[in-house]
Amino acid sequence: MPSNPIDSAARATPEPVARKIRGLSDRAIAWLFVAPTIFLLLAINIFPLIWTIRLSFTNFRANRPNREVEWVGLRNYERILTDSDIWLTMQATAHFLFWTIFFQVLIGFTLAWLINRKFRGNDLWTTIIVLPMMLSPAVVGNFWTFLYQPQIGLFNYVVSFFTGVDPSSFEMLGSVTLAPWSIVIVDTWMWTPFVMLICLAGLRSIPDYIYEAAEIDRASKLRQFFTITLPMVLPFLMLAVLFRGIENFKMFDLVVQLTGGGPGSITEVTSINLKREAFEKWRTGYASAYAIILFVTVFGLASIYVKALNKVKQR
């Protein structure tokens, strides 16, 4: 009779160790296994968080370790929340977040819906579409700066071809009105395939018999879409939005490569602003308060969103 793996493991355990384990309760053994993870979690996540909260009430500067640290109470929080420049970076982030998610969901879902149909070369097209998200954001940012170059950039020539305007008459990265859209375009180009893949998984999880039943009930294609396809893909779509929302809230590399936060501070999203405060100006206490405010914002919004997602899944 073949022994099962548990029996084998038990037999392989040296007798002194086995005796010790036999002396422990199940609960103690469970804690024994979980303890290293909890320790790591505390050391890497929880302790730095608590330390950051503490620093946020001080004027500490990491580049002046010898300087006396003063307790400043809520002054850092007050300065951040009343600083008009920081609100502008929040607006830049909100613009970027909203429009990238809007376009990625719209285009991603459409692509998934098209790819889900059976046609020749389906797999090849799927591979081609997902290529951009396999690239490094630094590389993407770098080559899009060339594409956007007003004198030699391909993007300007394509726009010129379709609209007839002079290619060097507009600057995607240098114009106050166009720069925020230039980063939206690149992020959409890069991450729409991710949304498409998640939507595709949702579409392929819908059993065919539901559509067959709808056909028998003589439901139109449009009705099938709104009563079957969309509701059943919605949890997947919401998950994609959550992932992209969290990712884009902390977007840094792509924007730095493309605009560096400029022109002026038009595309200076919060992560760039926070990095400047923390690691260029070295206002560690102030930057800690800033990070806590962002953390609470993201955590709050994500919690509300996850609750909504669970409700949708339960329907």
Partner: peptide, 17 residues
Amino acid sequence: AELLLAMQKRLHDYIVA
């Protein structure tokens, strides 16, 4: 560094943006 970054921002906001 703080003095420089402040100037970078104010100048770029006015001249380029």
